[in-house]
Amino acid sequence: MASGKTTFGRELAEEKGMSFRDLDSLVEERAGCCIPDIFAREGEGYFRELERDVLREFCARGDDFVLATGGGTPCFFDNMERMNAAGHTLFLDTSLPVIIGRLREQRATRPLLAGLSDEELESHVKKHLDSRLPFYLMAKERL
């Protein structure tokens, strides 16, 4: 969640001479619309199932790549186990103030955050990070 996964992923892919993909972009390509529209039309459950399916297909390709996922991706189904089986996973351990600052600027484009006040945003982020941390710590490396 706003830890810099896409920025870091692009830089890492370039450094390693690998292809880079963003899971959210792959999901949007599959759905034919943006993630906020998927949430609005179909709900989070549908989005998470679609995300899981696209992740499975992408990981099964077997080629070398860097994939940035959404912050919730590791927390659903067997996604974290699948990513660990497919390759080297990294947890970008970003500080809470940095995450909150980034999300204040991006709030309108994130379906789970749109419309939250600053206080609600901070509470939401803390709650989600606490619940997601056990999944993030399953990554093979922490940066």
Rank of each mutant, 00 (worst) to 15 (best):
R61L: 11
T94S: 09
P74E: 02
G87I: 02
G43T: 07
A68Q: 04
E81K: 11
A68W: 12
I99T: 03
N84Y: 02
A60R: 09
C59R: 00
F76E: 03
R41I: 08
P74D: 00
Q106P: 03
E49Y: 01
G71Y: 07
R82A: 14
G70S: 08
R107W: 04
F91Q: 06
E57G: 14
V66E: 05
R61E: 13
G45M: 01
G62W: 09
L103G: 02
F76Y: 14
Q106L: 12
A86E: 05
R56M: 07
P74N: 06
F65E: 00
V98F: 05
A60H: 04
L96V: 11
V98D: 03
G71L: 10
V98R: 12
G45I: 06
D63H: 10
E51H: 06
E49V: 08
E44V: 11
L67I: 15
D93L: 10
L90W: 13
L103N: 01
R102E: 05
S95G: 12
I99E: 00
F65Q: 07
L67F: 10
D53I: 00
R110M: 07
R56K: 14
P97I: 09
M83G: 08
I38M: 09
R82Y: 00
R104F: 04
T89H: 08
C75W: 01
N79I: 11
G62E: 02
I99D: 03
R52T: 10
F77S: 08
G72D: 01
V98K: 13
E81A: 14
T94Q: 06
C75Q: 08
D53G: 08
E81N: 14
R107V: 13
R56F: 04
V98A: 09
C75R: 06
L112M: 15
E42L: 12
D93I: 05
I38Y: 11
A86S: 14
R52L: 00
L103H: 03
E42S: 15
C75D: 02
I99F: 13
L112N: 11
G72S: 09
P111R: 04
A85R: 12
T89S: 15
S95H: 06
F58M: 01
T94W: 12
G71E: 09
G71R: 05
T73G: 11
D63F: 06
G70V: 04
F39S: 09
L92P: 13
V54C: 03
D64M: 03
E49I: 03
H88F: 15
L55Q: 08
V66P: 14
E105G: 10
R82K: 08
T109R: 13
E42K: 15
F39I: 11
N84C: 13
P36D: 01
N79E: 05
A60Q: 02
G62L: 11
D63I: 00
R48C: 05
R56Q: 14
